[in-house]
C-alpha cells in the first residue's frame, strides 16, 4: 500500500510541485515580468504580465502545419523532449534547504550542466527536422551559442565545487544539496571573496544560455526569420516558447542556489518564531522558501536579463563567441585561480 502511496507522492512531485505545473506557471510568469520590465525601461506601457499565458494558449488554439519536407515524428517530438528535460532539471535544483532526497540524490552539478544541453539539442533537432534553410543557419548559430556558454559555465561550477569541496573528504563536491548546506553554515557563496568574479560570470552567462536578446542570433526574427522556429506553428511553437520561459526560471534559480543559498537559513527561525510546529511549520517554511526563491529569481532576471535586453543591440554570432570566450571566461578563470590558490 505505501508503495503506491509513495509512487503517487513522487508522481505528484514530478507533475505538480517542483515539476511541471510549478515550472509552467512560474516560467511564463517570469517571462511576462521580463517583457514588462523591458517595456518599462523603454518608457512603454508594455504587455500585461500574463501575456505569455495568452500567447501560449493562443498558439495551442492555432492549427499546426507540418511542412512537406519535414520529418513529422522529430518535428512534433522535439519540443516535448526539451520540455521533459527542463522539468527534470528543475527537480534537481533544491529550494534552499528543502529538497526531495529521491531527486537531488540522483544528479549533481555536472549532470545539470549536461542537462542544459538537452533543451538546446532538442531545439536543434526540431529546427533540423523541418529542413528549412533558415533553420539550418539558426541551428549552427544556436550550437555556437551553446558552445560559447559552455566554457564559463564549466569554470564557475568547478570553482564552486572546489570551494565547497574543501570541507568534504574528496576535496571536491558536486552535489547541489551539499553546496546549499555549506552555504547554510558558512553564509552565501556570494560573500566568498574568490567567488565574486564567478558570480558575475554566471550572471553574464544567463542571457546567453537562455538565448535572450543580445545573444539571440539563433532566433533573430529580422535576419533569419526566427531561425529554427521558422517552420513551427501552433502547439509545438507554444511548447518551445514555454521551454524558453522555463529555461529562464532554471538558470536564475540555479544562480540563486549557487550563490545565495545562505538566505534560506532565516526561514526556519522565522517559522519557529511564529510558533508553528510539525508538518504545518514544514509546509509554511517550504512555501516561504519557494516565494523567496521566486522573488530572488525575479530580481536576478531584472538585473541579468531585462536590463541587458533593454540597453543592448543584438550581437553577431562571432561577437557572441568572442565575448563569452574572452571576457566572461576570463572572469571565471580568475575566480578559479583565486579559489585554487587558497583565497
Amino acid at each position: 500500500m505505501d508503495m503506491i502511496l509513495n509512487a503517487l507522492k513522487y508522481l505528484a512531485y514530478v507533475l505538480i510541485f517542483p515539476g511541471f505545473l510549478f515550472c509552467f506557471l512560474s516560467g511564463l510568469l517570469l517571462c511576462g515580468i521580463d517583457r514588462k520590465l523591458v517595456a518599462r525601461m523603454q518608457k512603454r506601457v508594455g504587455p500585461p504580465i500574463l501575456q505569455p499565458f495568452y500567447d501560449f494558449f493562443k498558439l495551442c488554439g492555432k492549427e499546426t502545419i507540418v511542412p512537406a519536407a519535414a520529418n513529422k515524428f522529430m518535428f512534433l517530438m522535439a519540443p516535448l523532449l526539451g520540455l521533459a528535460a527542463l522539468v527534470v532539471l528543475q527537480l534537481f535544483i533544491p529550494v534552499f534547504q528543502f529538497n526531495i532526497p529521491a531527486f537531488t540524490e540522483v544528479a549533481d552539478v555536472i549532470v545539470i550542466l549536461y542537462l542544459l544541453l538537452i533543451p538546446a539539442v532538442s531545439i536543434i533537432l526540431g529546427g533540423a527536422s523541418t529542413g528549412s534553410p533558415y533553420a539550418g543557419v539558426g541551428l549552427s548559430r544556436e550550437m555556437v551559442t551553446v558552445l560559447a556558454c559552455e566554457l564559463p559555465l564549466v569554470l564557475v561550477l568547478l570553482s564552486v565545487g572546489k570551494v565547497v569541496g574543501a570541507s568534504y573528504q574528496g576535496g571536491i563536491c558536486f552535489s547541489m544539496t551539499k553546496i546549499v548546506e555549506y552555504q547554510m553554515s558558512h553564509g552565501s557563496l556570494i560573500t566568498h571573496a574568490g567567488l565574486i568574479p564567478a558570480a558575475i560570470a554566471f550572471l553574464l552567462v544567463i542571457p546567453g544560455e537562455t538565448g535572450n536578446h543580445p545573444f539571440d542570433a539563433a532566433e533573430a526574427e529580422t535576419e533569419i526569420c526566427e531561425g529554427m522556429l521558422a517552420e513551427y506553428s501552433g502547439a509545438p511553437l507554444g511548447v518551445f516558447k514555454l521551454n524558453h520561459g522555463i529555461k529562464m526560471l532554471t538558470m536564475t534559480s540555479l544562480f540563486v542556489m549557487l550563490f545565495f543559498g545562505g538566505l534560506g537559513s532565516g526561514i526556519e527561525s522565522l517559522v519557529a518564531l511564529v510558533g508553528l510546529t510539525g508538518t504545518a511549520a514544514h509546509m509554511v517554511s517550504v512555501l516561504l522558501a519557494v516565494l523567496l526563491l521566486f522573488l530572488l529569481c525575479v530580481i536576478v532576471t531584472a538585473v541579468g536579463i531585462s536590463l541587458v535586453h533593454a540597453v543592448t543591440a543584438r550581437l553577431k554570432i562571432e561577437q557572441i563567441f568572442k565575448y563569452y570566450w574572452t571576457v566572461v571566461s576570463g572572469l571565471a578563470l580568475l575566480s578559479l585561480v583565486l579559489v585554487w590558490y587558497g583565497l
Binding site: 518599462r40 525601461m41 523603454q42 518608457k43 512603454r44 508594455g46 536590463l307 540597453v311 543592448t312
Partner: peptide, 17 residues
C-alpha cells in the same frame, strides 16, 4: 554600457504612451 542610467531611471518614471 550605453543607456544603462536612462534605462533604470525610466523604469520608475511614467511611460510616455
Amino acid at each position: 554600457f550605453p543607456f544603462v542610467k536612462e534605462a533604470i531611471s525610466k523604469l520608475f518614471s511614467k511611460p510616455s504612451c
